[in-house]
């Protein structure tokens, strides 16, 4: 059996195991984001949004926040999935099953990232379906929508993987979402257009990677964006490359995994 075919079987095994895990604990992986987003739509979209009026080219506030909230769910769930699953494997030492096997490091990384992106996609679809109960949506650029979801989910899956590698206890995988991910998400143009901000806040917002993900996705769904879509994709691709290199380098050196 060649190395490639062996690695592909190993990749399939990890992805399958991750998806089985997501489905086995669906009450923890799929239901909470659906409930949270329903509350966002009811409170911010319906109750408060109805008093705001239209925004950027005649969209209702509800329509405006749907892409941002969907992207927020996608990235937080991708991040949460990979950090808890990989750290759980480290904590139970079942990660050693993979470390002593002949599979290559890229297979471990790609397997976990694919599992996390899959959860992000399922949650994203769930959120969009729920949103349809509150407003009408016509996806303007399906390919851009899909690509921005895949890239956004991949970036935060990779970040979650790096977090899990460094984590020594469960608290360590909660720190980044609480102190980094959540503030960046809320300040990343989910609920507002950065054009509403004065300087220097507008300039500061432009170093927030989530701004580019939310706006690329919003462009795909609504056709509007605070940033150039080409720039948004370039930024996202750069993050994918840098984080992939970092994660593979950590795996190669065995940081947090091998003595």
């Amino acid at each position: 059996m060649s190395n490639l075919s062996g690695n592909l079987i190993a990749l399939h095994t990890i992805v399958r195991r991750e998806i089985v895990r997501i489905m086995r604990i669906w009450t923890q992986t799929l239901i909470p984001p659906a409930i949270t987003m329903t509350l966002y739509f009811v409170i911010f979209g319906k109750l408060i949004g109805s008093r705001i009026g239209t925004i950027q080219g005649g969209f209702t506030y509800m329509q405006y926040i749907v892409p941002g909230l969907a992207m927020m769910s996608i990235i937080t769930n991708s991040y949460g999935n990979i950090s808890s699953s990989f750290f759980g494997a480290k904590f139970q030492r079942s990660v050693e099953e993979m470390l002593v096997s002949p599979m290559s490091n890229w297979v471990i990384l790609l397997g976990y990232v694919t599992g996390a992106v899959a959860r992000g996609l399922v949650v994203g679809v769930l959120v969009l379906v729920i949103a349809l109960g509150f407003t009408s949506l016509h996806i303007q650029h399906p390919l851009i929508t899909l690509l921005s979801v895949l890239l956004g989910a991949t970036i935060f899956s990779l970040a979650g993987f790096v977090n899990a590698i460094y984590a020594k206890k469960f608290d360590d995988i909660a720190l980044v979402p609480t102190f980094v991910l959540t503030p960046l998400t809320y300040l990343g143009g989910v609920f507002y257009s950065v054009s509403m901000l004065g300087e220097p806040w507008q300039a500061i917002s432009r170093v927030n990677p989530i701004l580019y993900m939310v706006n690329a996705f919003r462009y795909g769904v609504l056709g509007i964006s605070d940033v150039q879509v080409g720039v948004a994709f370039a930024v996202m691709l750069a993050f994918v490359v840098v984080l992939s290199w970092l994660a593979l380098n950590l795996l190669r050196r065995g940081v947090g995994l091998r003595s």
Partner: peptide, 21 residues
């Protein structure tokens, strides 16, 4: 012990084989 305690023995063995291609 270094297997996932929440998985079934059959799955643990089959997945292990998968890691070996």
């Amino acid at each position: 012990l270094n297997f996932n305690q929440f998985e079934k023995p059959f799955d643990i063995c089959v997945n292990e084989a998968g890691f070996y291609g």
